[in-house]
Amino acid sequence: MLLLAAIACTLSCTRALSEEPVRVYAAASLGPALTPLLEAWSQDSGHPTALSTASTPRIVSQLQSGAPADLVLTADTTWMQLLVDNGWAQSPVHLLSNTLVLVVPADSPVQALAELQGPIALAGEQVPAGRYAEQALRAEGLWASLSPRARRGDNVRTVLAWVSRGQVSAAVVYGTDAHNNSKVRVLHRFAPESHSPIEIWAASTPDAQDFGLLRALSEPTAQTHLTTAGFSPAASAP
């Protein structure tokens, strides 16, 4: 107890000086596009932000453990639904859509799916990117041949890092991960109907202090930035 009191004193002394940031918990796939966007918003609005990225299910479990999020962005509908059902998030907005692709290292000689050899990386079973990948590979009749060689990564960015460094022969990632990335080459684009729609949802938490950040993310300026990063605009309001 004494120890906690000591920590309390020290922390309140060192931390109280700065303003509480708007805490954004976002799916790993959104990190690269979101970082500059949040910086720009902070400059305009004067409110600092703190971005925390992980795979969508890990973010859900962090919120479940009481992580103090103001805004949460998931890479699929199912996990957002779970957040809303449990009262950890409210009034979700369908922000963007994404696509699914199979990439190989940029210098790979492979030209067709049939030529693929060696390990293929997929995001984890519970991670949205991993679920979409499995659905799409099954729908296109590739699951039986590829699944024995599947290597599951922590989240989609892990998988992308593996393939970018040539550690695996191929990986199933989001279209945005391959966009403007010179280290990988898209070998195959999965048909949108081969997997559930890849929808990015944003929601505020019950006691959120977001100073209009959620609204700003849906506005044209932000949407333009995000589509430049390879996302597609949300098809229609839910």
């Binding site: 906690l4 920590i7 309390a8 922390l11 309140s12 109280a16 962090q62 453990s65 009481g66 992580a67 103090p68």
Partner: peptide, 20 residues
């Protein structure tokens, strides 16, 4: 953690010891 009695009380007095 914030969902525990101790962690919740600490968070209330401005000393959250999880995700902080």
């Amino acid at each position: 953690g914030r969902n525990t009695a101790l962690g919740g009380a600490l968070a209330d007095i401005g000393l959250p010891l999880s995700f902080s």
